[in-house]
Design a protein around this nucleic acid. Structure first.
Ligand SMILES: [Zn+2]
Ligand SMILES: [Zn+2]
Ligand SMILES: [Zn+2]
Ligand SMILES: [Zn+2]
Lengths: 144, 144
DNA sequence: ACCCGTTATGTTATACTATTGCGATACTCT
DNA sequence: AGAGTATCGCAATAGTATAACATAACGGGT
């Protein structure tokens, strides 16, 4: 996929978002977000865990708690069909994220969910949508 | 959710589908599909496993292989965000399934994916979409 | 300074989900 | 019969996630 903002910029934006909302972007959480931003593909929890403390000190709950915080804060998304996580680069205020994931390069693009075009059954009230599209991005298709 | 077809009917339809396409709906596969049809909510693999052989004889690969077969044949769907599986009651020829899952009663309704209303990034070719909506169905909303 | 409520982290163990690999069996097609 | 294929049984293991409890760190009120 094409050049997104630098991790540093995104990290600064996250700082600002947390400050605004009285959320604590602690060192672990910040570091996990940094790892997500540096990766150019969704990252697995145990890979984050390994990257967090090369010495092997960190335990699963550490990274899962950080991920819970980041996803709750809208700074990251869980990719359900991959059991993986990706930094949010879209700042969706309203509605959820809709992800386009390239199966060749792992790149993730985001849009907002268009509530309108999903025809819910009579009376069904949607609270939350999981929308993930898998395929091949433009760059990878050109590259063959 | 409201009355769907009986399991027996659906099972007969599955038999027909498999016969048409030269697929073998073996006893294990058939039994797993039957369990999915009888349930009125997505079912977890290990619950199927437990139900398959009350004696405890069946092993994980048995049920996962059956589920792989059923999903590949379009007779069942995996619910990604729940790590669970549900029988397909829609017979979607083209495109994938879009699921509406009630978080109160577990009921699942299906529609087809509307490719048109998802604005993919320039050049991105979607191969497969995972679309799951979570909320509350009409019946559960009335019931309070 | 002290106490206390709250939030965040560390630590251990365990639960839950899924796959790999191999051997036995059964069925089809020469 | 023999070769090839598909399915299944079985044992072990890999991968994902949480429970439960202890500790630490911060901030406000006294
Ligand atoms: Zn996002
Ligand atoms: Zn790509
Ligand atoms: Zn379906
Ligand atoms: Zn319901």
């Amino acid at each position: 996929m094409t050049a997104q903002n630098s991790s540093a910029e995104e990290l600064a934006r996250a700082e600002a978002v947390c400050a605004d909302r009285g959320l604590a972007l602690t060192p672990v959480r910040r570091r996990v977000l940094e790892l997500l931003l540096e990766a150019n593909a969704p990252v697995k929890a145990y890979d984050l865990l390994a990257a967090l403390k090369p010495g092997g000190g960190a335990q699963p709950p550490t990274v899962y708690r950080a991920l819970d915080f980041l996803t709750a804060a809208g700074l990251a998304h869980r990719v359900e069909a991959l059991n993986a996580y990706t930094a949010c680069v879209h700042a969706h205020e309203t509605g959820g994220a809709e992800l386009y994931i390239c199966e060749s390069c792992g790149g993730v693009a985001e849009t907002h969910v268009h509530g309108a075009c999903h025809e819910a059954p009579e009376g069904f009230k949607v609270a939350r949508s999981v929308i993930e599209h898998y395929g091949k991005c433009g760059d990878c298709r050109k590259a063959g």
